[in-house]
Design a binder for these strands. Structure first.
Length: 103
DNA sequence: ACCATGACTCCAT
DNA sequence: CATGGAGCCATGG
């Protein structure tokens, strides 16, 4: 699972109070279009608590609807606690919270 | 190498 | 706005 390891490393690098998109992680990991594989990697989530998967959002800035570790509301709560504003529809402002300098 | 799967993304209806 | 189909990639059988 070398590719997945890369994904985990990147996710762990996301600064507190910031978020990253699947496409962003995919690009940094080496395959800009492997967003699907990235999501799959997070689905495995081998080390919960270590990997902040709640900071990973889709291209629209929206979090996973249901398959998340504890539900979208749990992620919303965590993100809010870190300083990330989450909209009622479960999306975040990428213009402000996207970790552009990640990498 | 082929097929099936999936926390994605784009486009059409 | 909801739903569905097609394309992308990595993994496992």
């Amino acid at each position: 699972m070398s590719y997945y390891d890369t994904v985990y490393e990147i996710v762990k690098r996301i600064p507190r109070g910031k978020v990253a998109t699947y496409g962003q992680i995919a690009a940094i990991s080496g395959s800009p279009k492997a967003s699907r594989a990235v999501g799959y990697a997070l689905h495995f989530n081998p080390t919960p608590g270590v990997i902040p998967c709640h900071r990973v959002v889709n291209r629209n800035g929206g979090l996973a609807p249901a398959f998340a570790f504890g539900g979208i509301d749990a992620q919303r709560k965590l993100l809010t606690a870190e300083g990330v504003e989450v909209n009622a529809d479960g999306t975040v402002d990428l213009d402000k919270y996207l970790a552009r300098d990640l990498k």
